[in-house]
Design a protein around this nucleic acid. Structure first.
Lengths: 195, 195
DNA sequence: ATATTGTTTGACATTTAAGTCAGACAAATA
DNA sequence: TATTTGTCTGACTTAAATGTCAAACAATAT
């Protein structure tokens, strides 16, 4: 049963990713996804059996993707500060494209007790924590638990992108203005993280 | 038609708030809410006509609530740094109880183009931005757009609480350990925000 | 060319959630 | 006590989303 790659399966996954992770429409229906992909709704069942299976596949893909990209930075041989700058850049780009990925995962966890595939804390993360500790010992960054440094890093990058629709409304900000803010932030974040 | 206050209406609202904002179950059904509140599903229709009306009421209540609490801090006569410390405390408490409130609002915005009631940027916020600018001029905090200072403040407090389930899984952290992290953070956040 | 087989579709069935309504119940009032 | 009136419930209706299936379609192989 050699498969005949029409690209449809990937198209559906990409479309789902866009709707869930980029547009933040967490309860989009299979019809919504099919329409957006320009295919009949039932092809989703053909390729993925059920909506839930599609969910899980898309989620797994997205996680593997991100892990790959982040690990590449975290494990790179750059000096600590340069690595952080690079990380901010890569993570910002990632989040600009898929701002709601984490939120979606959290909503899945809360709704269905979804647990992540991999158990052991990733090697890359362990390695990164060590580097953070060393930077603390050198006095490059404030004294704190390495995990808190990581939380700061993630927070400063992710939160504004995550809450963009809210702030756009609250502050009546245009998209261009928002991009400017985000650009200014990159420098600020580095300044705040390092002493 | 004098109403006979049985507390049911408030009970339903409180339950909905808990399910949506505390437990992060964004697509809970009316049945879920009714069960959790220990009432028949149809009382929701009796008191709120439709599920959507309940949504909007709960959302409005929550927003008014938060605005009230935050404005009280922002408009208080405390010196800038003390005000920030107080803000961190109040906002942390608020978010510990309802970590998913903002996320829920954002998902509503993304799904149905929901727009917030009040148009003009709130007085309190304007006032706060002025204070931030003054603190910048005094050299208390780094030079940046006041809105970016606010984003930093919000990010550092909110993001960890928002993504708690993810980090708990990724890092295999217990609730107690997490609380400790959050406690350490309060000091760190102040340190990071001020030069 | 024709058969084979993977892919796609539309009609139908099933399931699940939201909303309606008549009547039961209980608290206030006459 | 009897009546009124607000509150609550369960059975029913309607609406919407998921899933199944037989048949049509199209690419590849014989």
């Amino acid at each position: 049963m050699a498969i005949r790659d029409t690209g449809t399966e990937q198209l559906i996954k990409d479309t789902a990713k866009r709707i869930f992770f980029s547009e933040g429409k967490f309860n989009a229906t299979t019809q919504d996804i099919a329409d957006a992909a320009g295919v009949a709704r039932t092809v989703i069942n053909y390729y993925f059996r059920s909506k839930d299976t599609l969910f899980q596949q898309v989620l797994k893909d997205a996680m593997d993707d991100m892990k790959l990209r982040l690990d590449e930075v975290l494990l790179s041989k750059l000096p600590f500060k340069k690595k952080i700058v690079k990380f901010i850049d890569v993570f910002s780009t990632e989040l600009s494209e898929y701002p709601y990925k984490e939120t979606f995962m959290i909503s899945e966890i809360n709704a269905h007790g979804f647990v992540m595939p991999e158990k052991e804390p990733s090697k890359a993360l362990q390695f990164f924590f060590n580097e953070i500790q060393q930077a603390i010992d050198r006095g490059e960054i404030r004294k704190m638990l390495p995990v808190n440094f990581m939380l700061n890093l993630f927070s400063l990058i992710a939160y504004p992108l995550l809450t963009r629709p809210l702030f756009k409304q609250m502050l009546e900000i245009t998209d261009i203005k928002f991009e400017q803010l985000m650009h200014e932030r990159k420098k600020i974040i580095v300044d705040m993280l390092f002493t």
